[in-house]
Design a protein around this nucleic acid. Structure first.
Length: 427
RNA sequence: GGAGGGGUUCCCGAGUGGCUAAAGGGAUCAGACUGUAAAUCUGACGCGCGAGCUUCGGUGGUUCGAAUCCACCCCCCUCCA
C-alpha cells in the first residue's frame, strides 16, 4: 500500500461529486494510502448509458489517484433488479439475455480503466461468479441472518414501494439489497476492497454492505455516493426525444452523442464539465468566467461535447461527429463534397437507401422516421419545417428525384432545426 | 381465502349511456425569437387528403347508441385471515 499522490476526496468534493460518505474525515485519512474500491453496473440493457458514466469515470479518478478500481458487472444482481427508488416492480430479464449483456458491459467498463498490470491495475468481476454457487439454505443462514427486515423496510430506497398506494414490491426485488451487500463483503474478502462508490440512489445498498462486512468479517469498510445527474429544468437526464444516450456507438452514434452534449443547457453545462471530463476545476472555472464576460454563445458546450465524445468514442469518433455537425449546421448542405456524403453515412448520420429514382416527400418523411405519420409529415411541410438539400419544401406533392440529388446519389432531408436524414438513391 | 379500491390516449388525470377522439396538466414536435440555448408566444399532438375509421385491461352481452350498463375473465393495490 503506497501513499497516493492527491487526496481524491477533496478533488471529488470540489467537483461536486460527493453526495454522501461514511465517516468523512476518517475516510480521507484512510484514502491517503492506496486502497481498493468498487462500483457495480447491472446489465439492464445491452449497453451502458451516460448515466453510468459518472461512477465509471469516478472509478477512473480513483485509479488516477493511485487506488485500485474494481468494476463489478452484476450478472447476478441483474437477474433480480434493483428496486431502489423505482416506482414499480420491473420485468425480469431472461438469464441468457442478461448473460450476453454482462459480456458487453465488461467490455465497456474496461474501456475507461487502465489494465496495465501495475500496482493498481483495474479489475473487472461478475458477481454471478460467487453468487451462483451459494445454496438457498446457506444464503439464508449465513447472509440473511445478518439482516433485519425491520431495518430493511426503513430504507428510503424502498419506502415508496412499501407505502405508496398502487405500488408494491416482490420478495425478489426486496432481496436485492442483500445480494449487493454480499458483493461488498465478498470483494472485501477476495480483494481487500474497502470502499464502494455508486449513485446516490445506492446509499441504502452500500450501507447494507458495510454492515454485512462488519458482521461477517469484522471489517471496517466505507461508502461514498455520487449525486445523481440532474437537469436544471427538472427533466430526466440522459434521455432525448430519440431515447437514451448509450455509450455503444452502434446504439447512439458519435454524432448524436456529440450533439447531446452540445445541447446542454447553460445552467447545467459547467456542472457537467466537472462531472464528465477530467479538466481540472480551475480550468472549468476559467471557462465559465470567460463565457460570462463574452455574453454571446458560450464555449462551454462545445468543450464539453469535445471532451466527452473523445473520452467515449476516441479521437476518430470525435472527428466524425464534428465533421457531420459542421456539414449540417454551417452553411448549406450543397457545400458538401461527394466524399463528405459518403463519410456522413459511415459516420453514423441516419440514412436510408431509396430504391428507384423518385419518391414523394411525404412518404419519404415517414419512411425515414422523420415524421411519425403522413399527417405529421404534411404538417411539417405546412410549417415550412422540411428542407431537401438546403431548399425548403413548400408542397406535399414535392418529389425527391435522383436528377436533383447531390452527385446523382444523395439527398439530405432536414426536419425542423436539428433533425437530418441522408437518403441514398440506389438501383 | 374474505372485504374493499382500481386499470382511460406517451405520463398524470377528468369523464358513469348520446353534445366525447374523449376536459385539464405534463412531456414531445413544429414555427417565431435566439446561441443548433433558456424563457416566452403560436400551432400540432390516434389514423386518414377527405367522407370517415379505430381507441378507454380482455371477452361476450344489453341498447338505435357504451369509456360509461350487465356477465365472466386477467392484472394491480389496501385491509383482514
Amino acid at each position: 500500500m503506497s501513499a497516493t499522490s492527491i487526496n481524491i476526496i477533496n478533488d471529488l468534493e470540489s467537483r461536486g461529486l460527493v453526495s454522501q460518505m461514511t465517516s468523512g474525515d476518517e475516510l480521507k485519512t484512510f484514502l491517503s494510502r492506496s486502497r481498493t474500491l468498487y462500483s457495480g453496473f447491472d446489465p439492464t440493457a445491452e449497453s451502458l448509458h451516460i448515466g453510468n458514466l459518472v461512477p465509471l469515470l469516478a472509478l477512473r479518478r480513483f485509479q488516477l489517484a493511485g487506488h485500485t478500481p474494481i468494476a463489478l458487472v452484476g450478472g447476478a444482481t441483474g437477474l433480480i433488479g434493483d428496486p431502489s427508488f423505482k416506482a414499480a416492480e420491473r420485468q425480469l430479464n431472461a438469464s441468457d439475455v442478461v448473460e450476453g449483456w454482462v459480456e458487453r458491459l465488461k467490455g465497456q467498463v474496461s474501456q475507461f480503466l487502465e489494465f496495465d498490470g501495475g500496482a493498481n491495475s483495474a479489475i473487472v468481476v461478475n458477481n454471478l461468479d460467487w453468487v451462483k454457487g451459494v445454496s438457498v439454505l446457506d444464503f439464508l443462514r449465513d447472509v440473511g441472518k445478518h439482516f433485519s427486515v425491520n431495518a430493511m423496510i426503513q430504507k428510503d430506497s424502498v419506502k415508496q414501494r412499501l407505502e405508496r398506494e398502487g405500488a408494491g414490491i416482490s420478495f425478489t426485488e426486496f432481496s436485492y439489497m442483500i445480494l449487493q451487500s454480499y458483493d461488498f463483503a465478498e470483494l472485501y474478502d477476495r480483494y481487500g476492497c474497502t470502499l464502494q462508490i455508486g449513485g446516490s440512489d445506492q446509499w441504502g445498498n452500500i450501507t447494507g454492505g458495510i454492515d454485512l462486512a462488519r458482521r461477517m468479517y469484522k471489517a471496517q469498510v466505507y461508502g461514498l455516493t455520487i449525486p445523481l445527474v440532474t437537469k436544471a429544468d427538472g427533466q430526466k437526464f440522459g434521455k432525448t426525444e430519440t431515447g437514451t444516450i448509450w455509450l455503444d456507438a452502434a446504439k447512439t452514434s458519435p454524432y448524436t452523442f456529440y450533439q447531446f452534449w452540445l445541447n446542454a443547457a447553460d445552467a447545467d453545462v459547467y456542472t457537467y464539465l466537472k462531472y464528465f471530463t477530467f479538466l481540472d476545476v480551475a480550468t472549468i472555472h476559467d471557462i465559465e468566467v470567460a463565457d460570462m464576460a463574452e455574453r454571446g454563445k458560450p464555449q462551454a458546450q462545445s468543450i464539453l461535447a469535445r471532451e466527452v465524445t473523445r473520452l467515449v468514442h476516441g479521437a476518430e469518433g470525435l472527428a466524425a461527429a464534428e465533421r457531420i455537425s459542421r456539414a449540417l449546421f454551417t452553411g448549406d448542405t450543397n457545400t458538401l463534397s461527394r466524399e463528405d456524403c459518403e463519410q456522413l453515412k459511415l459516420d453514423g448520420l441516419p440514412n436510408t437507401l431509396l430504391i428507384g429514382g423518385r419518391k414523394n416527400i411525404v412518404e419519404a418523411l415517414v419512411e425515414t422516421g422523420l415524421a411519425s405519420s403522413n399527417k405529421m409529415a404534411r404538417e411539417f411541410i405546412a410549417n415550412t419545417a422540411v428542407a431537401v438539400n438546403g431548399a425548403c419544401v413548400d408542397s406535399p406533392d414535392f418529389d425527391l428525384r435522383i436528377e436533383a440529388s447531390l452527385f446523382g446519389r444523395y439527398a439530405i432531408i432536414k426536419r425542423g432545426k436539428k433533425m437530418f436524414h441522408l437518403v441514398c438513391f440506389g438501383a
